[in-house]
């Protein structure tokens, strides 16, 4: 599942994204870098928010996102620090509430991932930042996402899980029909794990590069 931004421009709360155009190919990890306030989270919100108003077009597999949003949302896993799940409920209660929205939700996979990631069964409000990210990762895997959007998820992640996390991402993109698009501030991650990188500065996409040569 690939995603393409074509001349996406939006204005909200005194901030603008200007003429963003680039491709997030499937089978690769694409990084999104930029200073604080560059527009990374706003860009993710254009994909996720039904009420987002933008000019230009966002295509998923060549089809405009706004025309088939609900179908595409079945296969988009968005992982971020924002609390869109139910904080006063446990991971399993959240799944019981939300699994009905997905055509394919694998509860067994979700449970096994929670166990594998050592996510405790307490309410989400009692989870640490890292544990909350792990819960969301398990949730995204359970509904068989083909496009993973991750907004600064690795900050605050312990080094052991971070290793596992990137191993999981590489396993996912090996399937070739999955794309990972993640924002980060950590240069080492870009160099070691990402295939492409898009730079964002003051609401403009500044560059898009393959990172292969840096890895070497």
């Amino acid at each position: 599942m690939y995603i393409e931004f074509s001349h996406v421009t939006t204005h909200c709360k005194g901030f603008s994204l200007k003429d963003i155009s680039f491709l997030v190919p499937e089978g690769f990890i694409t990084g999104l870098v930029g200073e604080n306030g560059a527009g990374k989270t706003t860009l993710f919100h254009q994909i996720m928010d039904e009420n987002a108003r933008y000019s230009g077009e966002i295509y998923i597999n060549g089809v405009p996102l706004r025309e088939h949003r609900q179908e595409f949302m079945q296969e988009i896993g968005f992982i971020s620090q924002e609390q869109k799940f139910f904080k006063n409920y446990t991971p399993m209660q959240n799944v019981d509430l939300l699994k009905g929205f997905y055509d394919k939700f694998n509860c067994d996979l979700f449970c096994s991932k929670l166990e594998e990631y050592h996510v405790p069964g307490r309410n989400l409000s009692g989870l640490s930042r890292g544990e909350f990210i792990k819960f969301q990762m398990a949730f995204a895997l359970a509904h068989e996402s083909k496009l993973f959007l991750m907004d600064e998820v690795t900050a605050g992640m312990d080094s052991v899980f971070k290793k596992e996390f990137f191993k999981e991402l590489h396993r996912l993109i090996a399937g070739e029909d999955t794309a990972v698009f993640m924002s980060t501030h950590i240069e080492e991650e870009v160099i070691r794990h990402m295939d492409y990188v898009v730079g964002l500065s003051r609401g403009k996409a500044e560059y898009r590069k393959e990172t292969e040569k840096w890895k070497r």
Binding site: R69, Q74, F78, Q83, L98, Y102, S125
Partner: peptide, 21 residues
Amino acid sequence: CVENGKSVSLYVKLKWMPVSK
């Protein structure tokens, strides 16, 4: 729903799920 003593819209909670307004 109520979270941390604050009343929050359920639609806002479900905004990123495959469900339309």
